[in-house]
Structures are given as structure tokens and as C-alpha cells.
């Protein structure tokens, strides 16, 4: 049992590994915390869908250092992001801004949900209508009632 626990612990150990190297970390914990927040919003330009905070790429490291340098120089979080955005464009933002070019990107999920609810609602209501349509007319009801009566009296056809 102990061996299993040890094995599992060893197996998850690499998950603790971080891309941020000790020499990058700022002495001021508040600034460092802000740097981490910003780094998580910036996309690494060579590894596509990874933020620079968790990327080991050289450019990602450079950008992390740049973020910390700007923060130390007194920039606000937004100013730091703008600084890098100005150089690398929308691509570098993990959450792209809402502009005319990204309108499809932002609205497509809403449109799809709307379409799904609409088709779902339509087909459900139609199914319900079909069920009520299937109700028997009085003539049939009378025939069934008669048949049931005969059955209850023990008679047979």
C-alpha cells in the first residue's frame, strides 16, 4: 500500500514543475503575484495554446521577464498587456478583444445555443401536439367501452 502511495506521489511530482524559473521571480510578492496574473493572460507565440506563465519556450521567458520589468517600472496591469499587445497583436491575448474582426468568434456560441434551443423547442412541441392528435374520436371510445363491458361480463366474441 505504502509503495502504491509513493508511486502515485512520484507520478504527480512533475505536475508541480513550473516554467517560471527562480531567477525570474520578483522580490516583491505583490508585484510577482500581478506578474503571474498577467502572464496567464498572454499567449506564447511559439506554442499556440499555452500561456507564457507555463511555457518553457525562450520567447515566453523573455516576455515573462519583460512583464516583470514593466511592472517594476511602475506600469499598471493594463499598460503591461497593452505594451505586449502593441508588438504581437491580438494573437498574444488568450482572451481576444471584441472587435469587428472577432465578432463571429464571440457571437458564434450564442447563435449556436439559440439555434439549439429553437430546434429543440420546436421538435418537442410538435411531438406533444402529435400525442394529443392521437386521441381517439368518440366513436372509437364507445366501441372500446362496449368491448370492455363485454369482457368484464365474462363474455366472449
Amino acid at each position: 500500500m505504502r509503495a502504491v502511495v509513493l508511486a502515485v506521489l512520484l507520478a504527480v511530482l512533475p505536475m508541480l514543475a513550473q516554467a517560471v524559473e527562480p531567477d525570474e521571480i520578483l522580490a516583491d510578492p505583490a508585484l510577482e503575484a500581478r506578474a503571474r496574473v498577467i502572464s496567464k493572460q498572454l499567449r506564447c507565440v511559439v506554442c499556440q495554446n499555452q500561456d507564457i506563465d507555463s511555457s518553457n519556450a525562450g520567447v515566453a521567458r523573455d516576455l515573462r521577464l519583460l512583464v516583470r520589468e514593466r511592472l517594476t517600472a511602475g506600469d499598471s496591469n493594463a499598460e503591461v498587456v497593452d505594451y505586449i499587445h502593441a508588438r504581437y497583436g491580438d494573437f498574444v491575448l488568450l482572451k481576444p478583444p471584441f472587435t469587428r474582426r472577432t465578432v463571429v468568434l464571440w457571437l458564434a456560441p450564442l447563435v449556436l445555443i439559440f439555434a439549439a434551443v429553437l430546434t429543440g423547442g420546436l421538435s418537442l412541441s410538435r411531438a406533444r401536439r402529435r400525442r394529443t392528435d392521437a386521441a381517439l374520436d368518440p366513436e372509437d371510445e364507445a366501441r372500446i367501452a362496449a368491448a370492455m363491458d363485454r369482457y368484464k361480463q365474462g363474455g366472449s366474441e
Binding site: V46, G58, V59, D62, L63, L66, R87, Y88
Partner: peptide, 13 residues
């Protein structure tokens, strides 16, 4: 040397 001009140019590699 430190790749800072590279960032100014927006290069990825």
C-alpha cells in the same frame, strides 16, 4: 544579446 529588439519586432523565432 537579450532578445529585446526581437520582442520590439514581434518575432517568434
Amino acid at each position: 544579446l537579450d532578445g529585446r529588439a526581437g520582442i520590439e519586432w514581434g518575432i517568434s523565432g
